[in-house]
Design a protein around this nucleic acid. Structure first.
Length: 464
RNA sequence: GUCCCCAUCGUCUAGCCCGGUUAGGACACCACCCUUUCACGGUGGGCACCGGGGUUCGAAUCCCCGUGGGGACGCCA
């Protein structure tokens, strides 16, 4: 059995979205599972709609997700290969050569300045209700698709179709098949939206006398709200958005794997190496899946909890850096590295995602933090919280700040003296020091902030 | 309109191929527990085999028909 060669063939005509990413992922997984080759081919035959910016997004997103390509355009350590060029806009000579083969075989004709592919069989005219015009149909035998996910599918291609536009540029169906032949592609793994196109492609492979590759049409990802498949304009559709929001690529990849595939048991969070080991085409589902970002958020949380301290600090810093000139981000970035480290590590176990970090940690980096009025009104409404604050401040003046437990002990002793509990001091102290009612433990917060800053905040609180 | 694909909790899914399960797990939701807030975590709960016909002693599982969802029908990819 010869080596598996799969390809991911995006066209740079829009942003890179969840559906494209999963198609790339499944191709990549299959290549890695079989020890095959993962080819990246850029389908930029539609000059009017392509852009270098979109191309950049494709490279960036694939790289971020860790989907390294063995052959294709050279970017970083990826790319190269003996079947180039890998951008269709640079393969015109190859398409001409293949077109000549078809012409020589008598399988083309010209009409309206375009080159058409001629199906074999008798022709007759019929009125097409969808297009509201009379069209020429061909009495043709069905193309048989042996799909690795869906089983045997038959579809009859019954109309000739354009393969070269009147401006001389070849169209998708033609270049797609030519490149799959020229690049020795053995398995075509793509979205189910291409299933209906496959009869065209099979006709072309046969006209070229080339072996038809194995097909695997994977289910589509439906938008989370409303009908239809997910498209680049839908909320939460773009990969770059998750990158920008600080999601962990490992989490997104793991989540995407589970959309249409599962290991056959109850495991969900799995190392990518294990997924590669288990992934196979027959295990892929046949029905479409709806994207659920709540579950993605949960997966992200599970991964975030496991990021080692050094890596988390680095990622937190990167995230703040990308926020650019936002005051909160700037304040965090100019803080002393050791202090920054302590703050983000204190917050790490409480976060759902990196995107929560700036707001969650803001009061560590500035004295100018806002106080939640609702929480303040509620806390001040009962008991004598300001008295608690005065007592606490007095205690903290001399308390041992060397560890969380030392601070905790001091507060507990204070509470016991007044016949109160830790909780009687906690809420109001938290509000005074952080302006909110959520956050890390106040003992950790106090220790990281330091005695002086805590005392200043406690003292000025009533005035705020 | 024609053609193609699909159909288990709200969502992702296991089970289907090789008929016999209290139809399992996860996210979300609710309750309780833990607790020093908020999370995390733990325990429990509600929640599904689209409908109708067959075949069979027995159907989520096999077959047919509906219905529903999705996709394709471009000189887009």
């Amino acid at each position: 059995m010869s080596q598996v060669r799969v390809r991911f063939a995006p066209s740079p005509t829009g942003f890179f979205h969840i559906g494209s990413a999963r198609t790339a992922l499944f191709n990549w997984l299959y290549a890695r599972h079989t020890g095959g080759v993962f080819v990246l081919r850029i389908e930029d035959t539609d000059a009017a709609r392509n852009s270098e910016e979109f191309l950049r997004v494709i490279y960036d997103s694939l790289t971020w997700l860790g989907l390294n390509w063995d052959e294709g355009p050279r970017v970083g350590a990826c790319g190269g290969g003996d079947f180039g060029p890998y951008r269709q806009s640079e393969r015109a000579a190859i398409y001409r050569e293949y077109l000549d083969k078809l012409k020589a075989a008598g399988r083309t004709y010209e009409k309206d300045g375009a080159v058409w592919f001629k199906l074999l069989g008798e022709r007759h005219e019929v009125f097409d209700d969808h297009r509201k015009k009379t069209v020429v149909k061909v009495k043709n035998a069905p193309a048989v698709i042996d799909d690795r996910i869906r089983g045997r599918v038959e579809r009859t291609e019954d109309e000739d179709f354009v393969i070269v536009r009147s401006d001389g540029t070849p169209v998708f169906h033609f270049v797609n098949v030519v490149d799959d032949i020229a690049m020795n592609i053995t398995h075509v793994i793509r979205g189910e939206d291409h299933l209906s196109n496959t009869s065209k492609h099979v006709e072309l492979f046969q006209a070229f006398g080339a072996p038809v590759p194995a097909y695997a049409h994977i289910p589509l990802i439906l938008k989370q709200n409303g009908p239809g498949k997910m498209s680049k304009r839908d909320q939460g559709a773009l990969i770059e958005e998750y990158q920008r929001r600080g999601f962990l690529p490992e989490a997104l990849v793991n989540f995407l794997c589970l959309l249409g595939w599962n290991p056959g048991d109850d495991r969900e969070k799995m190392p990518i190496a294990e997924i590669i080991r288990l992934f196979d085409l027959p295990g892929v589902n046949q029905s479409n899946a709806r994207f659920d970002e709540k579950k993605l958020a949960h997966m992200n949380l599970a991964y975030l909890l496991e990021v080692p301290p050094d890596a988390f600090v680095r990622q937190a810093r990167d995230y703040f850096s990308r926020l650019g000139d936002l005051p909160a981000a700037r304040a965090a970035l100019v803080a002393a590295p050791e202090f920054f480290r302590e703050v983000v590590l204190l917050c790490q176990p409480k976060l759902k995602g990196l995107e929560e970090l700036p707001a969650y940690s803001a009061y560590f980096f500035t004295e100018d933090y806002s106080v939640d009025a609702k929480v303040r009104d509620k806390l001040l409404a009962k008991g004598d919280p300001l008295a608690r604050l005065r007592e606490l401040a007095k205690t903290l003046e001399t308390a041992d700040f060397s560890s969380d437990t030392a601070i905790e002990e001091a507060i507990k002793v204070l509470a016991a003296v007044h016949g109160l509990g830790f909780g009687d001091y906690q809420s109001i102290a938290r509000l005074a020091v952080s302006g909110t009612n959520v956050g890390p433990s106040i003992t950790g917060m106090f220790r990281v902030l330091g005695r002086d800053r805590v005392l200043v905040r406690l003292a000025r609180f009533p005035a705020k």
